[in-house]
């Protein structure tokens, strides 16, 4: 088991390294060099270059290696992240990316976890019912709603739900917290405030992944229900409900865990879009404006961080899977 964890962690680390290259490619992708643009912006705004600014620029040139070859730039960026947690300079906000990225990431992860909880809490019972009573009314309804969730673009669903909330309550709730709770310390009141605000984004983000999870679970369960060992358990005289819980549901946990890996990128994607529409303080709107302003260290860092979160999530799900299924451990 330990060997498995080490092996999987190493391969995850390798993937992470490759992703960092892709993220760096995003940083250098736009034509022109960010620092030059920055200097010309300052010149245009203030008309002169103070010695202090000159020093700052030289320091940046040295720190991020703007005059070095690309691979040196890349290694300087990665070294900054690994050694000092320095993700680079955000030229649009005039701050260090690491100064504000973590708060945004935390909000993003809260939204992702809430959506995942929502998906699994709903998908497991629906899929289970659909598999035990295939071609029943509820089965068809679940399938149709799943298709609908796939077909409605996230931004439209977000708008419709906001509209519905407005029609019902007379106010549009945006953001993840009320104004007075925005910066408060964590407390029960703050969590409740959060729940009041995030049900719309959670519903939207959840609808994006729900269909595929239900589908995978249902077909896996249907498959398991026809396996000889279920027939064998019936022949043993195991009561039906106990049989369903002991055998197929137990095995359905495996595909459930393995959905985490491919669900995470989808959820991050949905979170970005939904946050932009609903104005949530996650990485989404910041990412969009960073791309539009060519604030590339910020954009590249966001890509790197959400990819890293996906890789870690997949790694954790793989390890859980190995714990749940002795066959994988054995291999």
């Amino acid at each position: 088991m330990l060997g498995f964890i080490v092996r999987r962690s190493l391969s995850g680390l390798l993937t992470l390294a490759a992703v960092s290259v892709v993220s760096f490619a995003i940083i250098i992708l736009p034509p022109g060099d960010a620092l030059t643009t920055y200097i010309s912006q300052i010149m245009a705004a203030t008309g002169e270059m103070t010695p202090e600014m000159q020093r700052q620029i030289e320091h940046m040139q040295d720190q991020y290696g703007f005059n070095d070859p690309l691979y040196v730039q890349y290694f300087k960026w990665v070294r900054g992240i690994v050694v000092a947690g320095d993700f680079g300079w955000s030229f649009a906000t005039l701050r260090n990316v690491s100064d504000f990225i973590w708060g945004l990431m935390a909000n993003t992860l809260i939204l992702i976890f809430a959506s995942m909880a929502f998906i699994y809490l709903l998908a497991v019972p629906i899929a289970f019912y659909s598999a035990v009573r295939p071609y029943s009314l509820i089965d068809y309804m679940a399938t149709f709603l799943g298709f609908l969730g796939l077909a409605i673009p996230n931004f439209m669903l977000a708008l419709f739900l906001m509209f519905a909330a407005y029609s019902l309550t007379g106010q549009v709730s945006v953001g993840m917290f009320s104004a007075q709770m925005e910066t408060a310390a964590w407390s029960v009141a703050r969590v409740l405030d959060l729940l009041r605000h995030i049900w719309i984004p959670v519903l939207v983000i959840g609808s994006a992944g729900m269909a595929s999870v239900i589908r995978i679970l249902r077909s896996n369960l249907l498959d398991e229900l026809n396996k000889p060992y279920v027939q064998m358990a019936r022949a043993k005289g195991v009561p039906e409900w106990r049989l369903l819980i002991k055998y197929p549901l137990r095995i359905a946990i495996n595909p459930l865990l393995s959905t985490i890996g491919f669900l995470l990128p989808d959820l991050f994607g949905a979170t970005i879009i939904v946050s932009i529409v609903l104005g949530l303080p996650t990485v989404g709107p910041v990412f969009l404006s960073a791309l539009l302003n060519q604030d590339m260290y910020l954009a590249g860092s966001i890509v790197l961080l959400i990819a890293a979160a996906t890789i870690i999530g997949t790694l954790v799900s793989d390890i859980l899977l190995a714990l749940a299924d002795p066959r994988i451990r054995y291999e």
Binding site: K227, K246, R250
Partner: peptide, 14 residues
């Protein structure tokens, strides 16, 4: 009952 394939007639995770 005894089935043909013990591998599939017995649960793999128990």
């Amino acid at each position: 009952l005894i089935m043909q394939e013990p591998m599939s007639a017995l649960s793999p995770v128990h």
